[in-house]
Amino acid sequence: MVRTLRLLDFRCFSGLDLELPAAGGVFTGENAQGKTSILEAICVLTRLHSPRTRRMATMARVGTGHFGIAGETWEQERKVRFSKEGLALTVDGESRDGQSKYLADGGLVVWMGNEDLDLVRGSGEIRRRYLDFLGAQLDPGYRRAWARYKVALKSKSLLLKESRPNEAEIAAYEEILIEHGTELTASRTKLVTALEPLAAAAQAEVSGKAEPLTLAYRPSGGICLRSALEHARERERRLRQSVVGPHRDDLELRLHGLAASEFASEGQQRTLALALKLAQGKLLEQLGGRLPVYLMDDIFGELDPGRRNALMHHLPGAAQKWITTTTLDWLKETPELENLARFTVGSGSVTR
């Protein structure tokens, strides 16, 4: 899936040249040495997305203002260059004009990290991002709809903050919000319907217990966005902000019929977060037509041997796995990983 990776002025790396076997590799080292940055670079190269930041400029090595990522992924040579002029994207030596064209034939990614616990405990925004990252990988139209929705939402929000909002302009932007917001709600609802049985199966396997898991998509103002906007008009003018729409929707998670954020134990919540990411991978495989690469950032140290082995058993055997860890003490308890290539990361360099 990802055969080579080359970095230039990315995070703490002035330069890096890696070659990985098909199965993947384990990267070990102390904290703040660059392990997570290697996984982040794969995510950016594949999906133009970082799970750590929304600003490309923050990934440039301090003092440079630019970075480059290149590599052979899914039998294509892909390059991402960032500078003050913006992004330059190429595939097999040919320039791709725009992110959508670059992503059209790119690979698929599942990111797993300790922060995934926030999928259960955190705000609705975190669960929306989970759905958006999945939807954008499966359907280019999803990414377009979300981008256009956000532009219209920002414009409407600015108008609402004025002392005397221009109602005609607000109405014009609301038509755009209704068009693309309705598309997003329908797409997310389908995603959640498809995810639910996959997540429930993963929850049962990783926990080793009968823990009925249900997922439900909850639109903030109901299914009809036009009606929701009409009912929210007075409240929006009073609060001077947009209060309904896909930017306020949520993904409801329940174990045994109870809200997982309130009633599930920490162990159950951690397993549920894993189950959501495993379900994401299964759905990408089913609907995306290829295996995703699994980027697993320091998650194994927090799991007991039973959950670690169940997790690895649930992952597709042929999928490539990039794993970071601060210690290898747990590796002998996880036979599925013992044959992965091992790398040591420290002081901006990587050795095998």
Rank of each mutant, 00 (worst) to 15 (best):
L5C: 06
L5H: 02
L8G: 09
F13P: 01
L16D: 03
D17P: 03
E19F: 01
E19Q: 15
A22H: 09
G24V: 04
T28A: 14
G29M: 11
E30S: 12
E30V: 12
A32L: 06
Q33R: 11
S37Q: 06
E40W: 07
I42M: 13
I42H: 03
C43D: 11
V44R: 05
L45N: 07
T46V: 15
L48I: 12
T53Y: 05
M59Y: 11
A60E: 06
A60Y: 07
G63Y: 06
G65P: 00
A70G: 13
W74V: 10
W74Q: 11
V80L: 04
G86P: 09
A88R: 14
L89V: 15
S95M: 09
R96I: 01
G98I: 14
Q99P: 02
Q99C: 02
S100V: 06
S100K: 06
A104W: 03
D105P: 10
V110Q: 07
M112C: 14
M112L: 15
M112N: 07
G113N: 10
E115D: 14
V120L: 01
L134E: 08
Q137E: 04
L138G: 01
L138W: 03
R148P: 00
K150F: 00
K150S: 09
K154G: 13
K156A: 05
L158W: 09
K161Q: 13
S163Q: 15
R164T: 07
A168Q: 08
E169I: 11
A171R: 14
A172Q: 10
Y173I: 04
E174R: 07
E174F: 06
I176R: 13
L177C: 06
E179L: 11
T182H: 10
L184F: 05
L184C: 04
T185L: 10
A194T: 08
L198R: 15
L198M: 13
A200I: 08
A204R: 15
V206W: 05
V206I: 15
T214F: 02
L215R: 10
S220T: 05
G222C: 13
I223Y: 09
L225E: 04
E230I: 15
H231Q: 14
E234A: 15
E234Y: 08
E234G: 05
E236F: 08
R240E: 11
P246A: 10
R248V: 08
R248S: 01
D249L: 05
A260L: 15
E266G: 08
Q269G: 14
L272N: 01
L272H: 06
L283R: 07
L284E: 01
G289N: 00
G289M: 01
L295C: 13
L295R: 12
D304W: 03
G306D: 08
H313N: 10
H314P: 04
P316M: 06
T325I: 09
T327Y: 07
L328M: 14
L328A: 11
D329R: 11
D329P: 00
W330I: 12
W330N: 12
L331M: 01
L331P: 04
E333K: 11
E333F: 00
E338V: 15
E338M: 13
E338P: 02
N339Y: 09
L340V: 05
L340S: 01
L340D: 02
A341C: 01
F343D: 03
F343T: 02
T344N: 13
V345G: 00
G346S: 14
G348H: 00
S349V: 15
